[in-house]
Design a protein around this nucleic acid. Structure first.
Lengths: 155, 155
DNA sequence: GCATCCACTGGGCAATCTGTCCGGTGAGAC
DNA sequence: GTCTCACCGGACAGATTGCCCAGTGGATGC
């Protein structure tokens, strides 16, 4: 089994109030402190919780424009392209995918004009045959996991 | 200006060792504790740092398959579609975009077979005209912000 | 039936960190 | 020259952490 009900409640609680601390959690959940501590350790050890890194808002950093670029890669050039993209700070995320494109990456830029600079930099390598970009206008559902955790914990 | 050098070092330090605490940070950075505390408060107040939510790995939760779906929406049905997708736990993220598709969403599923169920649920609303899905195979660059922070802090 | 293992409870301990003050200093703005 | 602001270095009580312990209850295996 992935996680049980108590694990789920711990994660959800932690997601809602990250600064909460083990002691306060144990109070809210009505279990002993040692239990929460042990559960947390296990969740971290199993990799269910990867960490507690700060969530940084690129917009507040001066990068309010987000875009997704679909890239088509020349056969056998995958490794080079990956390394190249990993070196571009504005590439926040990169996936290799099935389908018409071969890679999908998330970009940020200082402005729509600046996005051109970023894309130029992204495609400045031979291995990329074609790139098509979609600019993000709104983000109705920001990255979230709570609903998934709740679903996973119910079983 | 967005963030200065010290802000950048604080964020990077926090990203690398999230459990670190203000006191230890002040030691590592060679500044007074009050300074780090004030900087952190400001970063949080300005929204540069949104929070410290736990990073949950969907794979460890039993959802090892990730996919991106591009959706075409019938004119004027945007709101309904958003609400519908927000109610699907496997939809981790939703963006409205320019370009051929109208929305882009990130999905997870228990297996490739299960992905079919998720997609069926996603498209189970009138407003979606067409959906095209790309399954993620690898994730050479997991979501990251450190390089961007470092770049933003240099100026 | 009985022993064993495991998770949880409830408690206690010292060490550490947090939140919050304070006065003093230096740099830049007016 | 004066003011404002950020930073420093230090202080304080209060709370939390990491760690330990013995006891309990359920599940498992013999």
């Amino acid at each position: 089994m992935a996680i049980d009900h108590l694990d789920g409640r711990i994660i959800v609680l932690l997601a809602r109030e990250p600064r909460i601390g083990v002691l306060e959690m144990s109070r809210r959940l009505g279990v002993a402190r040692g239990t929460v501590q042990a559960r947390l350790d296990r969740l971290l050890a199993r990799g269910v919780i990867r960490g507690f890194g700060p969530e940084v808002d690129p917009a507040a950093l001066g990068y309010p424009v987000t875009a997704f670029a679909t890239l088509q890669i020349r056969q056998g050039q995958g490794a080079e392209v990956r390394a190249h993209l990993a070196g571009v700070p504005e590439v926040l995320e990169l996936h290799t995918t099935t389908g018409t494109g071969d890679m999908l990456c998330r970009l940020v830029a200082r402005s729509n004009a600046d996005l051109q600079r970023v894309i130029d930099r992204v495609v400045a390598i031979d291995g990329i045959v074609r790139a098509s970009t979609a600019i993000v206008m709104e983000n109705p559902v920001p990255l979230r996991v709570i609903p998934l955790v709740e679903q996973a914990a119910q079983e």
